[in-house]
């Protein structure tokens, strides 16, 4: 019974910390300036959900939650890979200029160099127009 009394407060404390982590990561998902920011934050949310499942498995004693955590990890990995492929094929949309790199001084210098995806996208549209 004492083992229970030791583990239970630790599990409650871990749940509290992960609640805070969940809300911080959800904040990043909502206000993330670019799409990859949101993808990274969603990946982090999956990791936090796996932690939640493990703590709930300890608190309730249902060991089945470990299997659910494994399945969630698999799904989260596949989702992240699919999102990465999506970013790779779609390229950077025009309205997602990085606000961190955007300074008035750097504007003229940045106008000269263009990213690969934008160049290929431009090439594709030009080819279609012909």
């Amino acid at each position: 019974m004492t083992a229970h009394a030791i583990v239970q407060p630790a599990a409650t404390f871990a749940l509290f910390l992960m609640c805070l982590a969940f809300f911080l990561t959800a904040y990043r998902v909502i206000t993330g300036p670019t799409l990859p920011d949101r993808i990274v934050a969603l990946d982090m949310l999956v990791a936090i959900a796996i932690g939640f499942l493990a703590v709930v498995a300890i608190k309730t004693g249902f060991n089945l939650y470990v299997d659910i955590a494994i399945a969630l990890g698999l799904v989260g990995f596949l989702a992240t890979v699919a999102f990465a492929r999506f970013v790779l094929t779609q390229g950077m949309p025009e309205d997602e200029k990085d606000p961190m790199a955007a300074s008035p001084r750097a504007g003229s210098r940045r106008a000269g160099e263009r990213s690969v995806a934008q160049r290929t996208a431009r090439r594709k549209t030009r080819g279609r127009a012909r």
């Binding site: 992240t80 990465a84 950077m92 690969v116």
Partner: peptide, 18 residues
């Protein structure tokens, strides 16, 4: 997964911080 996301973001042209 992290490497894929970072490589895709870099190839798509997302910039590093200043």
């Amino acid at each position: 997964a992290a490497h894929l996301v970072a490589k895709a973001a870099h190839q798509a042209g997302y910039r590093l911080s200043r």
